[in-house]
């Protein structure tokens, strides 16, 4: 249990930091990938044209979060399944 408590404390500190920051500053919490685009604009004086465009883009923020949640759900399903399988195999009912 010791490890779980340490990890929980780390996540709590992180969450508290976020709650504090988000209520005291007006940070936008945008993606770092997009901010890099701003730096590229600055460095090149806005002259850089991307050499290619994404072949498909999620049409809205909702669709994007749907696909991200799907990604996480698939991952969680696989991990849960195999951990459960191993545990069940070890302790026959």
């Amino acid at each position: 249990m010791k490890l779980e408590i340490i990890v929980a404390v780390i996540i709590l500190v992180f969450t508290a930091q976020f709650l504090y920051m988000s209520s005291t500053t007006d940070s936008e919490y945008g993606g770092a990938d997009g901010e890099a685009e701003g730096v590229i604009d600055e460095l090149t004086g806005g002259t850089y044209e991307p050499i290619a465009d994404p072949i498909w883009e999620p049409p809205s923020g909702e669709i994007e979060s749907l696909l991200f949640s799907l990604q996480a759900a698939i991952g969680a399903l696989v991990i849960g399944y195999f951990f459960g399988y191993y545990k069940g195999k070890k302790q026959p009912m």
Binding site: F68, Q71, G75, V78, I79, F83
Partner: peptide, 11 residues
């Protein structure tokens, strides 16, 4: 599991 872990964390 290792692949799925990358799936979750990177989302």
């Amino acid at each position: 599991v290792a692949g799925a872990y990358i799936f979750i964390l990177s989302s």
